[in-house]
Design a binder for these strands. Structure first.
Lengths: 142, 142
DNA sequence: CATTTTAATTGTACCATACAACTATTTAAT
DNA sequence: ATTAAATAGTTGTATGGTACAATTAAAATG
C-alpha cells in the first residue's frame, strides 16, 4: 500500500477512535456500555466462561475483565457460578435479564447505525465490514 | 444496507474500538498519545488556535481540550500566547520541539500501520481510508 | 510434601472524556 | 454609560476503559 493511502488510513483511524470514545460517554444508547455489550454478547453467543478465558479471547488484562464482569453481576446481568472441577475458577453466565438488556441494547445500536449508514450502499457496507474484520484480525496477529 | 451487513459493521466496530483503546494504553509508539497527536497535527497543519476553536473542530468539550493543550504546553510542545484582540483568549502554537516530536511520532505510527497492513492491496487501503472518512463525517453530521 | 503455577480479586494509576461551577472579559441592550 | 448577557478559558469532580503489581486461594508438579 502506498504512503499516501497509509497516511489517510492512519489519521482517519485516530479521528475515528476519538469520535467513538466521545460518543460513548455522551450519547448513551441505553443501559449498557461498549465493554458490557461485548462481554454479554460473547457470553450469549459463545456460552459461559471464566474471566481468564474471556481476557484471553478479548486480549484484555484479567483484572479489566474481572471488574467488568463483577459489575455486570452486580446489576443482575450475569450469574457467577463456581466451577465444580476447579475451586479457584468461576463461570459467568448471562441471565435472562441480561439477555433481554443485550437484545434491547443491540437493537438500539442497530438503529443508530442504520441512521448513520442510511445512504450507504450494500457494497460499501460489505466492504467496510470486511475491512474492519480484517483489520481487527491483524491487530491480534501482529 | 441490509440487516446482516449492518450487524457485522456494528459488531466489528465495537471490537475495533476496544482493540485500539487497549493498544494505545499498552504499546506506546512514542512520547505522544492519540489525543496529543491529533491536537499537534491540527495546530501544525492548520495553524495556531484557541481551545474554543479546537474544541469545536474536534467536537470535544472545551475542558477536555483545555487540559490536553495545557499538558502539551507543560511539556514544551506548545506555546500559549495571548490574543491581543481579546483579553480572554489565547492561541496555542506548536513549538519547534513539538513539530519534531509530532513528526517522529507520526513516523512511528506509519511504521506500525505499514506492518499491520503489509498484505493489503492499494485498493483495500483506498477503500478503507474512504470508508473511515465517510463514517467519521457521518458521525459529525448525524 | 514443598514448590510452582494458575484463577481471580483488589489497590493504584493513567488516558480520555463530559458536566458544572467559576473567573475574567467582551458584547449587547436599554 | 450602565447593566445584563454571552463568551473564552480553567478547575473540580465523575465516569469509562484500560494495565500493572500485589495478594489470596486452590491446583498441579516434582
Amino acid at each position: 500500500m502506498n504512503e499516501q493511502l497509509l497516511e489517510t488510513v492512519e489519521l482517519e483511524m485516530a479521528v475515528f477512535v476519538r469520535r467513538l470514545t466521545s460518543i460513548s460517554s455522551v450519547k448513551k444508547l441505553g443501559k449498557l456500555d461498549r465493554s458490557a455489550y461485548l462481554l454479554l454478547h460473547h457470553l450469549y453467543t459463545k456460552g459461559s466462561s471464566g474471566v481468564k478465558a474471556l481476557a484471553d479471547e478479548f486480549t484484555l488484562d484479567i483484572s479489566t475483565v474481572s471488574r467488568q464482569a463483577s459489575s455486570l453481576e452486580q446489576k443482575g446481568y450475569l450469574d457467577k457460578v463456581s466451577d465444580p472441577s476447579d475451586g479457584r475458577a468461576f463461570f459467568y453466565q448471562i441471565t435472562d435479564f441480561g439477555v433481554q438488556e443485550l437484545i434491547e441494547y443491540k437493537q438500539a445500536r442497530l438503529n443508530r447505525f442504520s441512521e448513520l449508514l442510511i445512504d450507504w450502499s450494500d457494497e460499501e457496507g460489505e466492504q467496510f465490514g470486511h475491512l474492519l474484520k480484517k483489520f481487527n484480525l491483524a491487530l491480534i496477529e501482529k
